[in-house]
């Protein structure tokens, strides 16, 4: 059974691993220079990265984010739906191998290849980007590069891409099994995987490790402050290097959660155009004088690996649950 699975899978696997190898080689060629630069420049590295390396940084992020999605769509979704579509499952299921073993072999080999591909890609990119990540965690400017905990970078570093790939692959297989047609299964896999990837940092990841809280005064010259929703909300950015801010809350003079008073919006009101800087600082000072403060909840940089392992566990658990679903479905519900 392994032979047949490998025989059917080897071309796709070869294409994927060749692409991964080519990309890893590119990273290997430029990585050492970046590491040298960090040794000499430290956190100010962020201002000295060459433009090609900057492109490579973003390319790396994109590739690690894309690999699980591509695996789910191009390896997972067609794995069984193509057999159902062409009727070859009739051939396969009437050899001397039970469907459960057939499925187990296909899932096992596919998941192992998926996790390896995603793992190697993530390893290469994490290694290459580590000087930049360290520079950012050490206090380097974050206007060009993401802290490792930022949702964009988090899914492209460490071990979570391995779990993402396993999940995306089994998700594709399960949808292919249920939908039974390759193209719709691929589209649905992409849509569902993207939805899960967007939901995770919004609603799940912030709760996977104990966050830190800090309360900053509202005053000109303090932590940078921006306003949202027509000055009804305030967002403060305390200088905690490498942190991921997960929620904001304005507190009144009594230290109770409160909404931003209407006087603040009135103060910022202009006949036309945005308020001037002096006006903005004046209004902030007034608000601060009323006793208002801003509470910021964030995941500190030190929680990176705790969050990585927790999220890895969740995605692997989902992949296992979907595997169980596939095994049930193929025995009870197919044809």
């Amino acid at each position: 059974m392994f032979w047949l699975t490998w025989r059917q899978f080897r071309t796709q696997a070869a294409v994927m691993f060749a692409a991964v190898a080519a990309f890893a080689a590119t990273l290997a060629a430029t990585g050492p220079q970046l590491a040298d630069l960090y040794r000499t420049a430290g956190s100010s590295l962020v201002d000295q990265v060459s433009s090609p390396d900057q492109t490579l940084y973003y390319t790396g992020l994109l590739i690690v984010l894309a690999v699980p999605a591509v695996i789910g769509m191009f390896w997972g979704a067609p794995l069984i739906s193509r057999e159902l579509e062409t009727g070859t499952h009739y051939l396969a299921w009437n050899q001397g191998v039970t469907r459960t073993r057939w499925l187990a072999t296909k899932l096992g080999l596919g998941a192992a290849a998926s996790m390896t591909a995603a793992g190697l890609t993530s390893l290469a990119v994490s290694w290459w980007s580590s000087p930049i990540d360290r520079a950012v965690n050490g206090g380097g400017a974050t206007d060009t590069y993401f802290p490792r905990l930022d949702p964009v970078a988090f899914a492209a570093r460490g071990v979570v891409p391995v779990a993402h790939a396993a999940f995306a692959f089994v998700l594709g297989v399960a949808l292919g099994l249920v939908i039974r047609r390759t193209l719709p299964a691929m589209a649905t896999t992409f849509a569902l995987y993207a939805a899960v990837q967007i939901s995770a940092p919004l609603w799940i990841r912030p709760h996977l490790a104990a966050p830190d809280r800090t309360t900053v005064p509202i005053e000109p010259g303090g932590a940078p402050i921006s306003i949202q929703e027509g000055a009804r909300q305030i967002v403060a950015h305390p200088e905690v290097p490498g942190a991921w801010e997960t929620s904001q809350q304005t507190l009144n003079a009594a230290g109770q959660p409160a909404s931003v008073p209407a006087s603040f919006a009135d103060c910022l009101h202009t006949e036309a155009g945005p308020p001037t800087l002096q006006q903005f600082e004046g209004c902030l000072a007034d608000l601060g004088a009323l006793g208002y403060q801003q509470q910021v909840t964030y995941q500190p940089a030190g929680n990176f690996w705790a969050l990585q392992w927790a999220e890895t566990g969740i995605y692997l658990g989902l992949a296992l649950a979907l595997t169980g679903f596939c095994a049930w479905w193929i025995r009870r519900r197919v044809t």
Partner: peptide, 21 residues
Amino acid sequence: AAGVEQLAKVGFVAQDTPVYS
């Protein structure tokens, strides 16, 4: 199709005789 032994006893050539192209 209850198990390997049962599968070995029965051969099935499905409609349109599917093969791996």
